[in-house]
Design a protein around this nucleic acid. Structure first.
Length: 642
DNA sequence: GGGCCGAGCCAC
DNA sequence: AAACGTGGCTCGGCCC
């Protein structure tokens, strides 16, 4: 690939001119910047080229000029005439941008101030005088209309919460961009999308003015500038949509995008519903934790008190020593003549000193009290008496959800905590998870006949693996010896775990662990080969795909990078894991959509409340619980075949 | 006093 | 030298 310097017309050869090129290259002739980030993609042959060509260098098709934003053309609906014109305009268009403005990002506190609807030619802005009427008279759920939104989850929640309106077909430019660039730097804001696709600057600071307003002060405070910028947010949506749609089609990602857009609505509903927490039971855990923590702290004080002031001066400094500080802990250990590189649990376990043991206990209670203590309860909303977490639908680059405020995907497995997530009076919780989902995916992807047979025969997988590895009959497999090793390897597999780490987990040296791994792979050659091939593909191609074509990019370092080997081996491990995790994601997301649809179709008193990677949680009335359980099970099983 | 980052630890 | 994938939360500690 080559291009001309825009300054001196020198022709420069550049190895790979791709979408991801962002840094400017210097022209060897005149030293001016070549601005590689300005690129065009041929609409005929998909070839990328820079702005020094007026025709595609590959197929000669004339360059398609960048979309120029027209002057913003908007109407604030203030009269019946405006309203009528707006409704007529909307009913004529099957693809429309949609956005809302309010005074809070929290849908429970948000006061809806504006609803903007339109396309690149015209935007109608509805304020509180009109949007309620609009909500009644506009058929939002028209199945023939596609709503374009940036971060549809938010507006879906706001519209449902404020106006009781539900959107049917959505295209989310935020999610579309995430799908197109997964693994690359995240630049998904409307401002960044506008810069990328439309080469236009967008000022988002005006938005902040809405946060200072209420419906009462709206009429006095609103300015034409604010209206104009709210309209601008909608104007750009159809333009961005067209380019993203084209990119999605080219990458065979349309099906995946449609799935994610469906999931988006499910997630919005899930966040609005929230999940019930038994506050009383939760507080019981806190109280018992505090008691036990106090005991441990007392024991530690006693232990440290025995040291003389001379060697432990820092211990007696005010305020009392901070056991949460790793710096202080290291000092304390050194005063006992123990040097530690880390104060993590694995290190502490190796130290045979009463302090280490006490600290491990202290850590446990401290973690429970800080992350899962009163701060968790503070997130319960008084409006619903439930916690309403925020799910990031493609939070991880593998496609997995992430979750925060609170993160319901990291509740301790401890029964006491899990029991707190119960159903309110007269309702039931239904939770289903895939059994050994990722291992089964690996078995299927690799096609390993021995592994698959284990599953078909329904034997205990880890025992069978051990029997095969050590060449002994199943009956002779010892649980704490052979099976434990097999189980650890099975789980470490999908992550690309190495000998050193395996050795530490099962308590043997690195050499011995290497032998174990060799024995394992000697039996399961298909798995060995598949994992190796996945790693190579990731390193060679710079991306990997799942069965639904979900694509994750890897940034391949330059060969001369001094971290080249480290980064490449990391990409290899990610490559082994990504298809496995990613296919798990495809499955659970398909199941979510199916469950949501069927619960609605059958008008059951039930709704989704949580999803934890391979587990789906539904809350249902006692009356419908059995039916709902069946639906969840069936939907999850159907997704298995993808 | 807020932003940022690493350490440590919770989950799958 | 590191060598286990994907996240979020809280804390200490450093910087401005």
């Amino acid at each position: 690939m080559g291009y001309k310097c825009y300054n001196c017309d020198e022709y420069v050869d550049v190895p790979d001119f791709t979408e991801s090129v962002s840094e400017a290259t210097i022209c060897p002739n005149c030293n001016s910047d070549l601005h590689l980030e300005i690129y065009y993609r041929c609409t005929n042959c998909s070839y990328y080229y820079c702005n020094s060509f007026s025709n595609c260098p590959y197929c000669q098709k004339p360059r398609e000029e960048r979309v120029k934003l027209q002057e913003i053309n908007y109407t604030q609906v203030t009269t019946k005439g405006d309203y009528g014109a707006a409704l007529a305009f909307i009913s004529e268009h099957e693809i429309l941008g949609l956005d809302t403005e309010g005074n809070s990002l929290d849908p429970f506190e948000n006061e809806l101030l504006l609803v903007q609807i339109g396309d690149e030619t015209h935007v109608y802005v509805f304020d509180y005088h009109w949007y309620r009427r609009l909500a009644k008279e506009l058929f939002w759920m028209d199945s023939w209309r596609l709503w374009l939104l940036q971060n549809a989850k938010y507006d879906y929640k706001v519209l449902k919460q404020s106006l009781g309106v539900v959107l049917l077909n959505v295209f989310d430019t935020f999610l579309a961009e995430r799908i197109l660039t997964c693994g690359k730097e995240r630049r998904n804001s409307l401002k960044e999308l506008t810069e990328k696709y439309l080469q236009t600057e967008m000022d988002k600071t005006i938005r902040e003015a809405f946060y200072t307003m209420t419906i009462e002060t709206f009429d006095q405070k609103v300015t034409s500038e604010m209206l104009e910028y709210s309209a601008r947010d909608v104007q750009v949506l159809p333009l961005i949509y067209r380019r993203q749609k084209w990119e999605l089609q080219n990458n065979e990602l349309t099906q995946l995008a449609d799935l994610e857009f469906d999931v988006c609505k499910v997630v919005a509903e899930m966040e609005l519903r929230g999940i019930y927490v038994n506050v009383w039971a939760w507080r019981e855990i806190i109280v018992s934790c505090e008691l036990q923590k106090k005991q441990v702290v007392d024991e530690i004080s006693e232990l440290l008190g025995g040291k003389s002031k001379a060697t432990l001066t820092f211990v007696f400094e005010e305020p009392a020593i901070n056991l949460n500080s790793t710096k202080v802990l290291k000092q304390i250990f050194s005063s006992f003549g123990i040097t530690v590189s880390s104060t993590g649990d694995a290190e502490l376990a190796k130290i045979s000193h009463p302090l280490a043991e006490l600290l491990r206990k202290y850590r446990k209670y401290e973690k429970q009290l800080s992350s899962f203590g009163e701060s968790f309860l503070a997130m319960i909303r008084h409006e619903t008496s439930r916690v309403h977490p925020s799910f990031q639908q493609i939070g991880a680059d593998t496609g997995r959800f992430s979750c925060n405020k609170p993160n319901l995907q990291q509740i301790p497995v401890n029964e006491a905590y899990r029991k707190c997530f119960c159903a309110p009076q007269g309702r039931k919780i239904i939770a289903c998870d895939y059994s050994q989902q990722e291992l089964r995916i690996l078995a299927s992807l690799s096609g390993d006949p021995k592994f698959i047979k284990f599953y078909e025969d329904g034997v205990d997988l880890h025992t069978a693996t051990a029997s095969m590895m050590f060449n002994i009959p199943m009956e002779q497999v010892e649980k704490d010896k052979h099976r434990k090793i097999a189980k650890t390897i099975n789980f470490g597999l999908a992550y690309g775990q190495g000998a050193k780490n395996l050795g530490e987990t099962i308590g043997v040296d690195e050499q011995e662990a290497t032998r174990m791994i060799d024995k394992y792979f000697a039996q399961f050659t298909y798995i060995r080969d598949w994992l190796e091939q996945a790693a190579v593909n990731a390193q060679r191609n710079g991306y990997l795909k799942t069965l639904l074509n979900r694509k994750r990019f890897y940034e391949i370092p330059e060969k001369w990078d001094r971290d080249y080997r480290r980064i490449m081996s990391s990409i290899g491990r990610k490559g082994k894991n990504t298809p496995i995790q990613g296919i798990g994601v495809d499955m659970i997301k398909m199941a979510l959509v199916k469950i949501h649809q069927r619960l609605q179709e059958q008008k059951l008193d039930a709704f989704l409340i949580n999803v934890v990677h391979d587990e789906i949680v539904v809350e249902a009335s006692e009356r419908d619980a059995v039916k709902v359980g069946k639906i969840v099970k069936e939907a999850m099983e159907e997704a298995l075949s993808l």
